[in-house]
Design a protein around this nucleic acid. Structure first.
Lengths: 212, 212
DNA sequence: AACACATTGTTGCAATTGCAACATTTATAA
DNA sequence: TTATAAATGTTGCAATTGCAACAATGTGTT
């Protein structure tokens, strides 16, 4: 997985940050910053810590949109519609670099190799984000919880060429990812287990059926 | 909406295509090409015509993934998993430029302004693709058809600052976009109409309620 | 004009799902 | 450690949904 500063030396990273007129924020644990910046076309890079993007809709339901760790990028997640529904909440003390996207696009220093490397890294990161989102859409558009689970298993299994799947989140998180009610999902997982399709140990799921 | 060749002169476009070692295809109506290229990390640009990306799952169900018109880009849609489920089907005689993504990333000609403009255009196109997909995910993760419709209306209404929404696709297409059964959606639209929330004339929907 | 084909509208019904309300276990923080 | 919060498992039930099977209308092609 490519990261935003790959192939850019520490020295050049500093030059880059100056060139793009970035701002660095140091944020305490359990603070929120998105409301401050949500009106602008800004991307952020986490350089230390851990944070989550949470959306609260008008009913007060809160959903986890994305988890952010070191070198993760956010900002493209947040719809350009100016609404105050999004929060970035730090779960640890977190350092963030903010970049006005216009500065990236309008920068004239095309001869700076670190700047070109930076835009290439961004391109690669964006393509993988698009692919991730397509994958989730493929899964989530399946009509039943069972089919969503099976599609999720199928993709995860192909990715690692293995019938053993390790969940990267909690079961609660999986239900969110699939866009379904957690208890209904648990019920369906139990069915799949009882019918002999899968086996579950903690966050490990083993597929007992063939496909491909 | 930014397009891939914006701010690049016709002359420079030709230089760019040579620099990136692109291939141009002229394809008849109702032909398919994706299987030929799906194993590589390639993006395509439609320069003339009209095509659709269709996915056929192992049950034989076919779903429209994306519609492509002049200057649209495809390739990022297709999961990196090598499967033969995707088809690009031309609906008119169509011209396509194929670019190996590696050539974009590895190109060393950073001093060529048209190349830098091209990567910037790509960045902007990718960010808007990400935003589109996030929007669809926000809509599709609502738990009921009614709430999916209302979220769709809400986003469309905000986008054009109007309570009059014009559907960019057929109702069948809308059901696909929302990931729900068409007839169940029709039923729910009828409910919303009967309850006085909306009015429908052809592909125009008027919102009769307030929010924001 | 005559044809095939896609889109739309409707309805009954069975299957699936979300929700509420719990008990239990596991993490996390004071 | 202890208190607090988060995650998990279970179940009944009502609401929502997908599906099948139609008829009707609209669109496009030869």
């Amino acid at each position: 997985m490519i990261q935003i500063f790959d192939n850019i030396s520490i020295k050049n990273r500093l030059k880059l940050l100056k060139l793009l007129e970035t701002h660095t924020l140091h944020i305490n644990k359990n603070s929120s910053i998105i409301p401050i910046i949500s009106n602008e076309n800004i991307i952020g890079i986490i350089t230390k810590g851990y944070a989550q993007i949470i959306r609260t809709d008008h009913n007060g339901n809160r959903t986890l949109i994305e988890e952010l760790q070191e070198y993760d990028i956010f900002g493209t997640e947040i719809s350009s519609l100016k609404n105050k529904e999004y929060d970035l909440i730090t779960k640890e003390p977190t350092d963030i670099i903010l970049i006005d996207f216009a500065n990236i696009i309008n920068c004239k220093e095309n001869n700076k190799s670190f700047y070109n490397q930076f835009t290439k890294n961004l391109l690669l990161i964006f393509t993988s984000k698009i692919k991730e989102k397509n994958e989730r859409l493929e899964i989530i558009t399946k009509k039943t919880i069972r089919n969503k689970l099976l599609e999720y298993f199928s993709i995860a299994s192909k990715k690692h060429s293995s019938k053993h799947i390790y969940l990267p989140f909690t079961f609660t998180g999986l239900a969110d990812y699939l866009g379904v009610d957690r208890t209904a999902m648990t019920r369906e997982l139990k069915n799949l287990k009882d019918e002999g399709f899968i086996e579950i140990k903690n966050k490990r799921i083993e597929l007992l059926y063939d496909e491909f």
